[in-house]
Amino acid sequence: MNTVKVMLVDDEVDFTEILQKRMKKRNIDTLIANSGKAAISLIKKEKIDVVVLDMKMPDLDGIQTMKELKKINPLLEVIMLTGHASLGIAKEGIELGAFDYLMKPIDTDSLIFKIQDAYKRKILQEEKIDSIKEIIKSRS
């Protein structure tokens, strides 16, 4: 069975650590990045399916980080976390291809559901691409 690989990106170290423990307990494998830059370097090394991304971070903020991540892996699914429900940022994120957004403080169970949903979409997307590739292959 394919298990989802999640990257938690937030400048709050404690938050990511506890979240990682809780995810692990629910059999979800997670990696931690405490800045946008760390997230970018990590995604180059590891195969990651879903990113839980805080929108407000020093240096690279959530939107910029998401742009960079999407450049490296366009099929990457992103769940945005916001400290305040800024409709503007949420809208911008969705337009850039984010899966959804959650407001802090989050409910862990809903986050897990969102992660699973995002992962499902990713797999569907990958299958679609594979089948298109096959069609192209068979035609050529």
Binding site: E12, F15, I18, R22, G83, H84, S86
Partner: peptide, 24 residues
């Protein structure tokens, strides 16, 4: 209000996750 909310929501998230972890 937005600034305050954001600053408070971050620690609140941490507290909530901690409590959740204790429960776990």
């Amino acid at each position: 209000a937005a600034g305050v909310a954001h600053e408070i929501n971050n620690p609140l998230a941490l507290i909530k996750e901690s409590a959740g972890w204790i429960k776990d």
